[in-house]
């Protein structure tokens, strides 16, 4: 598994070496790209502030934990743990919300706890489904049919159900 620690450095080296070989002005192009990244990040900041506060309310009051415990008996049947429920609920709706919930889960329970790992897998293998569908269909003059929601949410549900299984399988 430690091999994957090499992934990020390897990707960086491959990109830079290929860039150098192909005669790309690395510093200039990197700067332009990083600027775009910074602009996107800055656009994200105000909403993130608000969402983290809201999530902090729900999370630190213990309400989300209680919700997880409430659903625990049902979920443990499927091998899931209640701690990822808040993430599963927020994930399809809001990207910044999911980010806030995810970072509080791995912050409070530890990134390498079972819940932390399940949350990691869930976070990485699902998307802000409703947002994506809305934005993508907004580019067309069509309206998303029911089938689009059914199929995408099926994939999300599968992602949630399999997340615990995946964690057991890999660790």
């Amino acid at each position: 598994m430690e091999l994957f620690g090499l992934l990020a450095p390897a990707v960086i080296v491959v990109i830079l070496v290929t860039g150098a070989v192909r005669g790309v002005d690395i510093a200039a192009e990197f700067g332009k790209g990083a600027m775009e990244g910074l602009n996107t990040a800055i656009e994200l900041l105000p909403v993130l502030l608000l969402v983290v506060t809201a999530v902090g309310f729900a999370y630190r009051s213990g309400a989300l934990g209680a919700l997880g415990e409430l659903l625990e008996p049902i979920l443990s049947r499927a091998g899931l743990c209640g701690d990822v429920v808040p993430l599963a609920l927020v994930r399809p709706v809001s990207g910044s919300g999911a980010l806030a919930v995810y970072s509080s889960i791995i912050g409070e329970l530890g990134p390498d706890s079972f819940a932390g790992r399940a949350a990691t897998v869930l976070m990485g293998s699902t998307e802000t489904t409703f947002y994506t569908i809305a934005v993508y269909y907004a580019a067309t003059s069509l309206k998303p049919g029911r089938g689009v929601f059914i199929t995408s949410l099926t994939a999300d549900a599968a992602g949630l159900i399999f997340s615990a299984l995946t964690v057991r399988l890999f660790y």
Partner: peptide, 11 residues
């Protein structure tokens, strides 16, 4: 984002 721009330019 910076690295990916380099990657894009490098093909």
């Amino acid at each position: 984002s910076g690295l990916m721009r380099v990657a894009e330019k490098a093909g």
